[in-house]
Design a protein around this nucleic acid. Structure first.
Lengths: 159, 159
DNA sequence: GCCGATTCCATTGACGCCCATAATGTCCCA
DNA sequence: TGGGACATTATGGGCGTCAATGGAATCGGC
């Protein structure tokens, strides 16, 4: 498996350490990145995290804008400027920095959420409501897609 | 055969394990996926399951949206974030995670239902009523199609 | 020499992996 | 065509390994 998938809720210990789920660690290992690359998610109270795959994606995003353009500077600031590369200890744990924890509202428990090429770290309660909202939206969109397909094809064809 | 077809009702053992029907296993084997990819079905109390074919479908759905777009993050959260890749033991069994079982209302018995490129896992009672309902709809639709065909062709021609 | 940070061990509970058994089908041959 | 040997499936349980977690020990900096 080369994707971050599923979600796990884990506790921070008294030193603020938290284990990266084993399946995520194996993806990171294959990705060949030493450490954990993370930054505050742009539009949600969560932490984006990943390895080389995530870094290249960000690079590509920024490269789309002309050098010295206002947008480019802003994206670079928001993404690179707030990024951290966390060390991973021998047991596969990291210590989240204070800014990251504040941005996500994290205290003593976190939810790791796989998003394919990257994953996010959430305060579990906030994640639950975000998930509920996202699920609603996907349901609506799926229904809409189904309706379009039914309209295009002769009636009767179904998934 | 490279499609999931038919349905099977099997029991979970004391450790929560359940055998994947042999015919489904052979399809999965041909698909070349190590494990069983599954997630809560969007609009029904069941679990969607499959292999690479199913995962590619999800991937394609998400790839339609631009990286870092709001829609993409939400889709990824609702789909990848709730997916699980279950390990299959030497005897072809899996252990369903708690969230999956809750979503489908599963306790100690499940129904495996082939849907072609994927299959679903149901609580048997719920599946029966779902099946009854679906059968009704298909009957109605078939009657409707028959009527249309009869109208198009000269009267008399039948399926 | 003191404190914070990082590395190293120790526990425990879950899970993966292995083998055993039973029940059901399947195939072959008399 | 009937019966019996064989194969395969579903199921049950034991045991070793690993992950998550906690705490001790060691290192480095101020």
């Amino acid at each position: 498996m080369d994707r971050f998938v599923s979600n796990y809720t884990l506790r921070l210990d008294s030193k603020g350490r938290v284990s990266i789920p084993a399946s995520f660690r194996s993806v990171l290992g294959r990705d060949g990145f030493d450490g954990l690359y993370c930054y505050p998610a742009l539009d949600r109270p969560a932490i984006d995290a990943g390895g080389n795959a995530l870094m290249s994606e960000i690079e590509a995003l920024i490269a789309r804008f002309a050098p010295f353009s206002e947008e480019r500077e802003q994206f670079a600031t928001a993404l690179y400027g707030t990024s951290e590369t966390l060390k991973v200890d021998g047991e596969g744990r990291v210590i989240l920095t204070e800014p990251l924890k504040i941005h996500a509202g994290i205290s003593d428990t976190v939810a790791f959420v796989g998003l394919g090429h990257k994953f996010q770290i959430w305060e579990p309660g906030r994640f639950r409501s975000e998930l509920a909202e996202a699920t609603q939206k996907v349901r609506a969109l799926k229904a809409q897609l189904g309706a379009q397909a039914a309209a295009r094809n002769a009636p009767g064809a179904r998934e």
